[in-house]
Design a protein around this nucleic acid. Sequence first.
DNA 1: GACACCTTGTGCATCAGTTCACAAGAGTCT
DNA 2: AGACTCTTGTGAACTGATGCACAAGGTGTC
Lengths: 215, 215
Amino acid sequence: MAPLGRIPEATVARLPLYLRGLDAFPVGVTATVSSDELADLAGVNAAKVRKDLSHLGTYGTRGVGYDSAFLRFQISQALGVANVWPVVVCGMGNLGRALANHIGFTDCGFPVVAATDSDLDKIGTVVDGVPVHAPGELGDIVHRLNVAIGVISTPPEAAQGTADALVAAGVTSIMSFAPTVLSAPDEVEIRSVDLVTELQILGFHLHRVRIAEDS
Amino acid sequence: MAPLGRIPEATVARLPLYLRGLDAFPVGVTATVSSDELADLAGVNAAKVRKDLSHLGTYGTRGVGYDSAFLRFQISQALGVANVWPVVVCGMGNLGRALANHIGFTDCGFPVVAATDSDLDKIGTVVDGVPVHAPGELGDIVHRLNVAIGVISTPPEAAQGTADALVAAGVTSIMSFAPTVLSAPDEVEIRSVDLVTELQILGFHLHRVRIAEDS
DNA sequence: GACACCTTGTGCATCAGTTCACAAGAGTCT
DNA sequence: AGACTCTTGTGAACTGATGCACAAGGTGTC
Ligand SMILES: NC(=O)c1ccc[n+]([C@@H]2O[C@H](COP(=O)([O-])OP(=O)(O)OC[C@H]3O[C@@H](n4cnc5c(N)ncnc54)[C@H](O)[C@@H]3O)[C@@H](O)[C@H]2O)c1
Ligand SMILES: NC(=O)c1ccc[n+]([C@@H]2O[C@H](COP(=O)([O-])OP(=O)(O)OC[C@H]3O[C@@H](n4cnc5c(N)ncnc54)[C@H](O)[C@@H]3O)[C@@H](O)[C@H]2O)c1
């Protein structure tokens, strides 16, 4: 048992799924959940669930399972979901607007508190409760609103510049939708959500079976 | 050299990045690119580039590098980017609209040819050139327009049902944005783009450094 | 042709992650 | 108490991916 040892990256990526799976269990009610059930809910296998949970020093009871409420608490603790991390959306185009409008983020502790856009017609407006500022005000916004996470939904050409501005403002966590490789200091965590690449991976597999069929 | 052996999944995921990196080289011009340069362009290291390319039986010339045009051809071939895979977007809400409107998909061979929505006000309309149909017509649409890929951008409650309908219609590739675990037959490839989970992973790391600072 | 200089292709060590399989513990029933 | 059932926690094998380091093989120069 390693109460607070290093948690493997692969495990971290699955913890949110377990947490979501636990929502199937009513709060306040004492209920137990087995690694098998959780595995089903999260779409992985039971051995992985147990090994993952063992990394957070969680203890279920053998022969019974895990206490759902306590497990939820433990995972929440590990992920730090009690924290609220304000988000700034850079680039209020088609995608940016959809993101800013998404209540699911706020519900999970990631409120979109501001946005930037280079379009003069948009600057100064308020979209779905989110005020749109000029890109130059980014540093100011970040400090004033305690922004922790920057989302990049600008056109690809503006992505690196926006990333630099975010980093300069002290933001260390970035989620980017731009189809570009971003460079930033090591301590900055960048997660790139590359939808075209996702589609191309799907396309690769479609292509494979097409070839297989033709042979 | 394995001209057409199995390509590792991790490699497949990087091929689109290399292809994109090659765009920095003008077409039609004979130019060579080294694994080092490509590594920079794709944001990985040179050894990985070489090993990846070796999987497609590509041959660069030692001492020189890879012919950029030929390399582009080889990767395109492997990924099958010459194919056009029509896409249907299920759920024309905030996100679905952004996706349907995104020209980048069409440019890469993934045209959004139709959409579905359960909202009676939307059915029958055409949004950004994309006709919106009733969910019940999904099977028909898929056959008529040769749809290869289904995108799920419905509310989470409707996601599994939509996935089932896509599978029933013969679609074997799905990209889902719904925060739910989807089940489908093994031969169906599902890529789940889970933005809340992405944010929670960022949140985890923010949480870690906060704890580290407080100690 | 010989030599200096590049950059590829790859064998190999290493590392991270997954999966198996089973002993150890906790409950339950008689 | 003892036997039986259940499910956890984990050592160990295995799989896949990464990165190093260097021989092999090409180019260019003298
Ligand atoms: N829309 C999609 O479904 C989709 C899908 C995949 C990838 N993407 C990527 O996401 C990004 C945004 O896509 P989109 O469809 O919303 O594009 P968009 O053109 O609709 O929006 C981009 C917005 O960014 C603003 N902008 C430009 N430069 C800026 C700067 N320096 N700072 C702040 N804002 C700036 C523009 O004014 C515009 O409002 C693009 O990189 C695109 O490739 C989008
Ligand atoms: N908007 C975002 O930025 C964002 C971010 C992360 C995840 N998501 C997820 O993406 C999905 C869509 O998000 P959204 O913001 O666009 O929601 P939305 O409510 O704006 O749109 C959902 C659309 O789906 C339609 N719909 C409902 N049932 C349907 C069915 N059975 N078949 C077809 N269409 C149906 C609705 O009429 C609506 O138009 C949700 O699951 C959401 O959790 C969205």
